[in-house]
Design a protein around this nucleic acid. Structure first.
Lengths: 244, 244
DNA sequence: ACGGTTCAATTGTTCACCACTTGACAGAGT
DNA sequence: ACTCTGTCAAGTGGTGAACAATTGAACCGT
């Protein structure tokens, strides 16, 4: 029988999904302050429900709550990026090395992610390309056979993606990564796990370096435009000017 | 100046802390159904605040929410235990191997945890003993230098501890683990990381086996007392009988 | 014994309200 | 001009009461 999981999710969860999409999709950029009342109104839910949703996302690390000061989309520092890549290296390499018993379906999923990735790149759909790039890495984690690790890794990728939305795709070619991923897949199916691990390690190093570079460029460009202290969460003046 | 971080936590967070203590301390046993209204009333907070707290704990894995069906203290299966130990092995062993640059303060904290552990065992304070046993392992993770890994590991230990509260301490001697921990500490300070890692691996295997054994015994004992299906979350009959 | 119906209990969600904190602003004092 | 201080509006934290939706036990007729 087709076990179509009936949509049995609370409104708060759905709101969290929507906000997550907007953040990860780059619609809500890091640092953006959010106000409960307008946000709740814009989605047609109550303030309490919105608060539950923001609570979820703040525990995921996508939003940052400062008590009595408001909520803002989280911002990744270069230190955060380095930390996340350190953990990714450990988890993903260990996953590949643990891939002795690789199920056909998992390999099939990897293949599908790879194909979708290439397809998106050819179609110049960068958002979809990044998604399938990261999906490929998520699938690697499944070799561990641990739901908890999968969830944790997914959370890490979510945070990382927040840093990625900043990058200017005109100066960065996601298509470059196609051959590496394809190589990883081939080595994996061939059972050459150690070689696969070393390629993966280099791939992650390279990936981190590219992201760090683009973040540096972004940070220095930003420093010229904004005050050094960063924008405060509250800004009555702006509101007042909008009312005029 | 003394930067005493002023307690700046929301009520919901404090409620979460209290519930966490009760769950981890064994006061609220796995499977126990919780009702929002009485629980909120017992702590003197509103239902909304209590819902925020339960949301936090359910995301931590300590509570399990079934929509419209209520909340219950989560229950660990043997499969969960195995999974958690698999992840622990990976994280903790990697941490030890990464302990080339071991700071004196971290070593000092490890030493302190060790001492406290032994002290608690001598005082027959099992709850405190378990706490410091796990604290020792948490500190190991700090060699990674990653806040995110620390938080994740902490979450794993929290879940694990929920399984531990079931064990009957009369049939299990926590003091047995003292020499192993002491050995780990010695090897670590001596810089014999590889040897330390193998000892740690065996320690974790042993630890898992002991917990699995005691959980099996508990499960079979429970099966004789309760209906096979497990208790349902709602039970109006009981309430009605209490009112008579 | 079986299958459908009723119904009270509980959770999900909304709403209105108040307390408290924050940060901008204006005026006093130097 | 500069700093300090009190004021004030905006916004979040938290409460309590209401209503809607769902569940599952009890009931009922066959």
């Amino acid at each position: 029988m087709e076990r179509t999981q009936i949509a049995r999710v609370s409104v708060a969860d759905q709101v969290a999904v929507i906000l997550r999409q907007r953040i990860l999709g780059g619609e809500l950029r890091p640092g953006t302050p959010l106000q409960e009342v307008p946000l709740a109104a814009s989605l047609g839910v109550s303030r309490n429900t919105m608060r539950e949703a923001t609570r979820i996302l703040s525990l995921e690390g996508l939003l940052k709550r400062s008590i009595h000061r408001g909520i803002a989309v989280a911002q990744l520092s270069r230190k955060d990026v380095h930390e996340i890549y350190h953990v990714r290296r450990m988890l993903e390499i260990a996953a590949v090395l643990a891939a002795r018993d690789r199920s056909p379906e998992l390999l099939h999923d990897l293949r599908a992610a790879l194909d979708q990735y290439e397809k998106s790149v050819r179609a110049r759909d960068w958002v979809s390309a990044v998604s399938h790039d990261l999906l490929f890495h998520s699938l690697l984690i499944r070799f561990h056979g641990s739901k908890r690790l999968e969830a944790f890794h997914q959370k890490l990728l979510g945070e990382l993606r927040m840093g990625m939305v900043l990058v200017d795709r005109r100066h960065d070619d996601p298509g470059m990564l196609i051959p590496v991923h394809r190589r990883l897949y081939q080595l994996l199916t061939a059972g050459k796990l150690k070689e696969c691990a070393t390629v993966l390690a280099r791939h992650l190093d390279d990936s981190e370096a590219r992201l760090a570079k683009v973040m540096d460029r972004h940070a220095s460009a930003e420093a010229g435009q904004r005050p050094a202290r960063g924008t405060s969460l509250r800004s009555p003046k702006v509101v007042a000017e909008n009312l005029r």
